[in-house]
Design a protein around this nucleic acid. Structure first.
Lengths: 232, 232
DNA sequence: CGCTGTGTTGAATGCCGTCAACGTCGGTGG
DNA sequence: CCACCGACGTTGACGGCATTCAACACAGCG
């Protein structure tokens, strides 16, 4: 047996699943390793598969005709991604790139129906996931419409440490490599502005950051900045 | 019989539906009229119903804690809306307001399961709708990240006339009342900037507009502006 | 040891938001 | 009918935030 069912039994998408059903589901999946910066799938490519991230972090990126890139989201361990099939799409609307070395489960689209019928609550869970992503994206539109750059960057960094933070001796660190350019592509600004603001925050002891690395040492103040309630 | 099944038989969400099934589905629905500016449901309110717009236009609005508003989308005739139940949400994430006098079909959430099992392709159609809305929202994020205000406004106006346009003798007119403020809330800018730019476009013979009314007389040039390819 | 990717910082420009004032339309009530 | 009032629209002046342009520093890697 190649894959152990304990890989998926703890995940929300496969809650309430029996051990033997889990084995059957894993039998139809393929496990693969993607080294850092490898592309799991490419934007506009025909969507024949869907994926589950077992370990690592995936960056989902949309590229415009003129070449500008926007980071749609980061995928965390245990999340489904590339689920074009669930939305009735035939092509991937974005690319998925490994932010670090990753392990990924891959299914063919034709296994979708089997998963829906075999796993209780799978469909509901998936559609809730999509719904959550829609709400997150709407919130991002609101943030870009109503907040200025410093608040948006602070909010983005807060969200990253909340959902992918790792405690260290100097605060909470985003546990994958992330550049100024990446943060700029998440917030609709430039790497220059990100660099300037993060330098200022470092002066004030709010963050510690370096090459592709960001730690938050004073989450409280950073949250105040995100809400534009900081008392200078 | 209070509702005629021809009301819904032509709609994409109810494709491949038999006449008697349609009758049964309508029997579980309630039809109501909402005058202009009436609220169909309110943001954060518990979601007990979902809706289908039979006629009119609905504006979906999200309000921030500080009071700023953002228009998430406009709903056209024949579209489902307020489908929190399909995303596993218990509250509405936005408000829905009638942009003109509207006729709306309302179901209780408990009718959701019945519709899914009785109508072939209903589930797939709904999830495709949600998927499309997610992609649209992502595109909006990209647009706000990479284009400047004039291009964004041009793009928004083009989309409005494409999906809700009505031919008149002086071009294609958006067939519901829309103010400068509304357009600003769709594009993340201010009513002042919208007014200035639309005045300039009117000078150039690209649009004709007045109180809560916008007609596009030169769609080609407006599209060029949206793509930042206009030769001044 | 050079090269590429990443990060920092200064200076100048300009887009567009803010503030302000005024004009106009349409509905409403006396 | 007309006067009033609120919603909507226009336009000018000003200024600030953030981009743009530029130059340099530093790290990791082959």
């Amino acid at each position: 047996m190649s894959l152990n069912n304990s890989l998926i039994l703890g995940l929300p998408a496969f809650a309430e699943l029996s051990g033997e059903d889990a084995d059957a589901i894993l039998a139809s999946a393929r496990s693969s390793r993607f080294p850092k910066n490898a592309e799991v799938f490419a934007q506009d490519e025909e969507a024949h598969h869907f994926f589950l991230l077992l370990s690592g972090h995936i960056r989902v990126v949309r590229t415009m005709p003129e070449g500008e890139q926007v980071i749609a989201r980061y995928i965390n361990e245990g999340e489904l991604f590339g689920i074009a099939v669930a939305m009735g799409r035939t092509n991937y609307p974005a690319s998925a790139v490994a932010a670090v070395d990753c392990v990924v489960l891959t299914w063919q689209n034709k296994a979708w129906h089997d998963l829906q019928s075999r796993v209780p609550g799978f469909g509901a869970n998936v559609y809730q996931t999509i719904g959550t992503r829609l709400q997150d994206t709407q919130s991002r539109v609101m943030e870009m419409s109503t907040r200025q750059v410093e608040q948006r960057i602070a909010g983005a960094v807060m969200r990253l440490v909340q959902q992918s933070g790792r405690k260290t001796e100097e605060g909470v660190e985003i546990d994958f490599p992330i550049s100024r350019q990446d943060i700029a592509e998440m917030t609709g600004t430039t790497l220059h502005t990100v660099s300037r603001l993060m330098s200022a925050w470092e002066e004030d002891g709010i963050v510690r950051s370096g090459r592709q690395k960001v730690s938050v040492t004073d989450p409280h103040t950073l949250m105040l900045i995100a809400e534009n309630r900081r008392t200078k």
